[in-house]
Simulated scan of single mutants.
Amino acid sequence: MRLFDHAAATPLRVSVREALAAAEPLANPSSTHRAGQRARAVLEDARERIAAALGAHPTEVVLTSGGTESANLALKGAWWASGPVGARGALVVPVGEHHATLDAVEWLEREGAEVRRIGVDARAVTDAAALAAALPGAAVATMLWASNELGSLQPVAEVAAAAAAAGVPLHLDAVGAVGHVPVDFAASGAAMLSVASHKLGGPHGVGALLVRRDARLEALHHGGGQQRGLRSGTQDALGASLFALALEEAVAELATEAERHRRLTDRILAAVRPLPGVRVPAAEDRLPHIAHLVVEGEGGRAAQGEALQFLLDEAGFAVSNGSACSAGVARESHVVRACGLEGVAPLRLSLGRTTAEEDVDALIAVLPGAIARARALG
């Protein structure tokens, strides 16, 4: 199977596998005995390396289980900390965000939070002016660094400046961007930033929320008070170390891999753009490793993304139709819908460090036939 869904998860790096195989059991890093302090040293070394790779201070690195927990901690924590019940500010959220963000916001809305939703354009780019106008009186604002489906880069600098001027903490979801475009937490102006290990060739279930030292958050859960009291619980020293290793390598190879991925995704898009019924919403200003296209139906019928995905899977290609998935049940992509694209089959093709030229050659050879069949099936 040729993997063209690296945006969902990319395989473990060789260095990470080797480090995992050679790892010795570690004690609880909160223990005061020598074994515990050895584990603490591994943990804090990893925290320092993660901070250095992302332009943060080590104390700003709050280790989590991944992007979903990080987004929940950022949004719920900032809203809860914004004032007493009945006097909290609004949540400002673009409609094209990942479901980890949208579902957390919807939960808070049921708890009484005011939510100000911001539209996106046909490329899934957030309306920065509308977001800035929604900031007065807000408790927290959030935005992707880049669309996780279309790959479109978002107006990070403009939104961060507006949030700073309004005194509103900004959370940036950089889970899909880190390792593909430069990400510097301090330079971004954000109060919080999410990142996840499995997008970088590290283990699943490990991630971080970078939290600026002056940001005010309430914890999601309580216990031993670890990590500035923001994320209690025994910390995974080995997982943090493997995460740091994957992150360092991803950042070190970013320039060369971004150039290679851009060349390959440009080839894919050039091959499909002339095909009947194919549109490319976000060809420019996008993450270099993502090629996103939509396929229109024919004869007045709506195209089916699941059909296109199944046809490519049968041909030996693991791809994504960009739809949200909950408990293994595919749903229509809310991002494509927010872009105003109706009755189309979305296809997200995402590359990684293991994607070779011959993989792209093979994909380009089968794409026209798969697209034609999917259009005919309606």
Rank of each mutant, 00 (worst) to 15 (best):
G239W: 05
L275H: 06
E357R: 11
C325N: 06
R348G: 02
A271P: 07
H289N: 13
A291N: 05
G297Q: 13
A252H: 10
L293N: 01
G316T: 07
A303T: 10
R263Q: 15
H292I: 04
A327S: 13
H261S: 14
V278W: 01
V251R: 08
Q304I: 15
I268D: 00
V344S: 02
R279Q: 13
V344A: 00
A365W: 01
S241M: 08
A271D: 11
G239Y: 04
A271Q: 08
E249F: 04
A240W: 02
F317N: 03
V278Y: 03
G340T: 10
S326P: 03
L242S: 02
G328R: 06
A250F: 07
E257T: 09
G322Y: 01
A345L: 06
P346N: 04
R279K: 13
E298S: 14
D359L: 09
C325E: 12
V319S: 02
L238T: 06
Q304A: 15
A356I: 08
S241Q: 12
P276F: 10
L308M: 10
V295H: 02
D361I: 02
A324D: 09
A240V: 09
E298D: 12
E342D: 13
Q309N: 03
A282D: 04
V360W: 03
E259K: 11
C339W: 00
H292Q: 03
L367R: 04
F243N: 00
G340P: 09
A338T: 05
E257M: 11
G340C: 12
D359E: 12
G328Q: 03
V344F: 07
D285T: 08
L349V: 15
L311V: 02
T355K: 02
R262N: 08
E357P: 04
S320F: 04
R279N: 06
E248L: 07
A356Q: 13
N321Y: 04
G340K: 08
A244S: 12
A291C: 09
G322M: 06
V294T: 10
A282F: 06
L242V: 07
R286D: 11
V280P: 01
V329Y: 12
V294G: 01
D361L: 08
R267N: 03
S323Q: 10
L351F: 11
A237N: 08
S320Q: 05
A330L: 15
R262H: 11
Q309S: 08
D266T: 12
G299Y: 07
L308D: 00
L238S: 05
E358H: 13
E259R: 14
L341G: 01
Q309L: 10
S320D: 06
E248N: 00
E296K: 10
R331F: 14
E249Y: 01
L264I: 09
E249H: 09
A315K: 10
R279I: 05
A255T: 15
D361T: 09
L363S: 04
G340Y: 10
P288F: 08
L351W: 02
E306K: 10
G299W: 06
G340F: 12
V360N: 00
A255E: 15
E332R: 12
A255C: 11
R348Q: 14
A324M: 11
P281T: 00
A237H: 03
S326A: 13
S320E: 02
V366R: 09
L312S: 09
L238G: 05
I364C: 14
V360Y: 03
D313M: 11
V336G: 02
P281A: 04
R301A: 15
S326W: 09
E332T: 13
L245Y: 01
L247A: 05
L254K: 00
E306H: 11
